[in-house]
């Protein structure tokens, strides 16, 4: 077993109130941390700014997808009805002058591809679906969906330093700070530990 596996993968700090959680996020942001997240039972207004989150990248996925929908629908109908097999419907010319008849399909396909791009883009940007995350190894973490507020700092953060990060989190009045270790996704070692069942719940 190497040292790498023994090293903690994240620090988890627990708070009692949304306000403390928000201020902890601000403190981490101001200290220059990037790879951290907050876990709360409900959305907290101002959290985006407190965490220093930039603009969502989703728009850069959705917009081209929507544009592709419009262009794809137009190309498809134009090819089928005007070029490959010109067909006159309702006395309308088989040509670009019949654009109005294409617009509903262009609109629908724009909406469809945009929606797909938004949903799957969101999943992709969130690295989902993901079956397991080490954070679930913490026995206290389950209450994030009940009445507790958590801040987690990943060991991949460039500013990561177990002692300093821990001190920082304690400095913003964390109720409880713990180191969380990876269990190699259900490896033998921790199979019998008390966390295992919670981890996969």
């Amino acid at each position: 077993m190497s040292d790498l596996q023994d090293a903690p993968v994240l620090l988890l700090a627990e708070f009692d109130t949304p306000g403390e959680c928000l201020h902890a996020a601000e403190a981490l942001r101001d200290a220059g941390y990037k790879d951290f997240d907050t876990h709360t039972p409900f959305p907290i207004h101002g959290m985006d700014a407190a965490m220093g989150l930039g603009d969502s990248k989703l728009g850069w996925i959705v917009f081209p997808a929507g544009l592709m929908g419009a262009i794809g629908a137009f190309t498809m109908i134009h090819w089928m009805n005007n070029i490959d097999y010109p067909i006159i419907i309702g006395g309308k010319p088989a040509g670009i002058a019949s654009l109005p008849s294409m617009i509903p399909v262009m609109f629908e396909l724009t909406v469809l591809l945009s929606a797909f791009a938004a949903v799957f883009g969101m999943l992709g940007l969130n690295k989902l679906p993901r079956h397991h995350h080490p954070i679930f190894n913490s026995s206290r973490f389950a209450s994030f969906s009940n009445d507790k507020f958590f801040v987690s700092v990943e060991a991949t953060d460039p500013k990561w330093n177990v002692d300093k990060t821990k001190a920082l989190l304690e400095g913003v009045h964390a109720k409880h700070v713990e180191l969380v270790y990876d269990d190699e996704e259900g490896g033998d070692e921790l199979e019998h530990s008390s966390h295992a069942s919670k981890g996969h719940a």
Binding site: I88, G91, K92, P93, G95, A97
Partner: peptide, 19 residues
């Protein structure tokens, strides 16, 4: 407006049905 090209082509009297 509806059929700029079509109306011109088919404006002759013998095209009663489509025109």
């Amino acid at each position: 407006l509806i059929t700029p090209a079509y109306a011109q082509q088919h404006a002759a009297p013998d095209h009663a049905a489509p025109a």
